[in-house]
């Protein structure tokens, strides 16, 4: 039985990691076809960086993720603070609506955003992508920050006021530093979500602003080029770095 459970576990991990390992290994393959091994090479990395459209899409994606994460962190943090600190009419509705955005199928969000942008006459491109990405990142940021605020000692702002800080100074010197880890975690979450979104982006992007996930998607459709493996490996390294960064921030703040 012990043998069986061990091999079952091994099988699960094998299924999880074999594709990733294959991807990484084949990104260094010298062969033109993706099925045979032709020796070690960096040629696909080279051709990837020589592919101007690809590099441009990468920068576009990075910029979009950066701005979308930042905007949604600012709006999300303020929303979370308002929900936490004040009692007002419609608070429950507002809270519930966040979950609706989070739980509704992405395709629904995509269609409704496209409809809205067309109705407003907004040209599809960077702005429409940014608005759409902020929309689906927002609930995640709000929930992350709210979780941190629920453990926040209500006496801290009072102590700051008692010592002579105005409401604004208190927010700057006490409130924001204390919830900083949650802001960072929310930002990283938003960044990741924006970076690999395909469904919503497909609907609301235009030819003026091509982003990485859509570029890869179109590349795959005309046949798998080993360049994609190289790109996938780079993205994997990038997300691992981001993951370790967020873990490090969280563990440091727990001390």
């Amino acid at each position: 039985m012990r043998w069986l459970s061990r091999s079952y576990l091994a099988l699960v991990y094998l299924l999880l990691y074999v594709p990733i390992v294959v991807l990484v290994v084949f990104s260094f393959n010298d062969s033109r076809t993706g099925y045979s091994w032709g020796g070690l090479s960096l040629r696909w990395y080279e051709s990837l960086f020589n592919n101007h459209a690809m590099v441009q899409a990468m920068w576009n994606s990075l910029w979009l993720a950066l701005t979308a994460a930042t905007v949604s962190t600012v709006i999300g943090a303020l929303t979370a603070l308002a929900l936490h600190r004040y009692r007002f009419r419609g608070k429950r509705v507002l809270n519930g609506m966040l979950f609706v955005v989070m739980m509704s199928p992405e395709i629904v969000l995509a269609i409704s955003l496209l409809g809205l942008f067309l109705l407003l006459g907004l040209k599809l491109g960077y702005v429409s992508l940014l608005l759409a990405h902020v929309t689906f990142c927002l609930p995640f940021v709000v929930i992350t920050v709210m979780a941190r605020l629920s453990g926040f000692d209500e006496r801290l702002p009072e102590a700051a006021r008692d010592l002579g800080a105005s409401d604004f100074t208190m927010t700057r010197t006490v409130l924001i530093p204390v919830i900083m880890p949650a802001l960072m975690a929310g930002w990283l979450l938003g960044f990741t979500l924006s970076m690999d979104d395909v469904v919503v982006s497909t609907f609301v992007s235009g030819p003026s602003y091509e982003i990485l996930p859509l570029r890869i998607y179109s590349m795959v459709r005309v046949g798998l080029k080993p360049e994609v493996n190289a790109l996938g490996t780079l993205l994997l390294v990038f997300s691992l770095v981001m993951l370790m960064l967020s873990q490090w921030i969280l563990s440091r703040s727990k001390q």
């Binding site: 000692d153 006496r155 700051a160 008692d162 530093p177 204390v178």
Partner: peptide
């Protein structure tokens, strides 16, 4: 000035 029940020291 006030000394709070759970001290309310700024943790950061």
């Amino acid at each position: 000035n006030t000394v709070f029940q759970n001290y309310a020291l700024f943790p950061h």
